[in-house]
């Protein structure tokens, strides 16, 4: 059952472009669809200008298919490649500035809680590694310290991709990138560990190689953020353009890193979040 707002007025239904009609008739609103249903429903993202073979674009698509209740989800993005895709998603979404996504989301989440105290309004932060771990790190971490009920997702392509492939804090040590012409001099920031120590109730790192695992992490992050506390999911999204490999190798790159443990997959759940998820997932509604 869809919310009333997702209904067209009959007066103009005949002139609405097909993609909107499809979203109402065959979109994921109120349907409980997940990643497994991709290909048989109208996706929340219509079309985007990201590169062929973009791992980030794939992750965005999978995230959008993983939302427990898209009809009550507002996405807060940040500057970067992902911000070219978010205007095209069929959800209300905010792009404010570079790095301030968790601060904006803190204000938004609290405002929505004030206006709709009896409803779950999921505020989902989706931003790149530069936005999350570099320029916005203080705001990301402080939203965790304050216990803001936000799900924060990092699309980690290990570089500033939108600006042309510069080193970021999440780039691997030794990696040669713009602004690191002799190779990066320090280690990849251990943000999952930092998240765990900063008060996140649920932390996971995943890749799009295993879409169901990604879906599970995103869903858990959103659900735990509703009741327990802040959550963090880090998704490795290889960038063929800036790391100069062939677009069809994106998933192979991710798989290789999973295998050789240079991008270890992890999940951390506090006992409180565990109990909350057990109660939810025991019901079989999600996963």
């Amino acid at each position: 059952m869809s919310k009333p707002m997702l209904k067209m007025t009959t007066a103009f239904a005949d002139v609405m472009p097909a993609e909107y009609v499809e979203l109402v008739q065959n979109g994921p609103f109120g349907k409980g669809y997940g990643v497994a249903d991709l290909g048989s429903f109208k996706e929340l993202i219509e079309e985007h200008p990201l590169c062929a073979g973009c791992g980030l674009a794939l992750a965005v698509r999978l995230i959008m298919a993983s939302l427990p209740t898209p009809e009550d989800t507002v996405v807060v993005g940040s500057t970067g490649c992902s911000s070219l895709a978010f205007p095209q998603i069929a959800l209300q979404n905010i792009h404010s500035l570079f790095g301030n996504q968790n601060a904006v989301a803190s204000g938004l989440k609290r405002a929505l809680k004030l206006r709709f105290p009896d409803k779950h309004k999921d505020v989902l932060v989706v931003a790149g590694d530069g936005a999350t771990a570099d320029i916005g790190l203080d705001m990301v971490m402080h939203s965790w310290f304050r216990g803001e009920k936000l799900a924060t997702i990092m699309l980690d392509n290990e570089a500033y991709a939108n600006t042309g492939g510069q080193e970021s804090g999440m780039s691997p040590e030794g990696c040669v990138l713009n602004m690191a012409p002799t190779g990066k001099k320090f280690k990849k920031i251990a943000l999952p560990e930092i998240a765990r120590e900063s008060g996140c109730a649920y932390v996971a790192s995943v890749t799009p190689v295993q879409p169901r695992k990604l879906e599970k992490a995103v869903r858990r992050a959103i659900l735990v953020a509703r009741e327990v506390g802040p959550t963090y999911v880090q998704i490795f999204v290889p960038c063929p353009t800036n790391f100069k490999f062939k677009p069809q190798e994106t998933l192979a790159k991710a798989k290789q890193k999973e295998k050789d443990q240079t991008y270890p997959l992890r999940e951390f759940i506090t006992p409180e979040a565990q109990a909350y998820l057990a109660a939810l997932e025991g019901g079989g509604k999600h996963d």
Partner: peptide, 22 residues
């Protein structure tokens, strides 16, 4: 459906239910 889960672009592949093909 592995191709559907691997495609970075939305609504490229459609799964045709009755034929079980994309």
């Amino acid at each position: 459906k592995l191709c559907i889960f691997a495609c970075p672009d939305p609504n490229v592949f459609t799964f045709v239910k009755d034929k079980k093909k994309v």
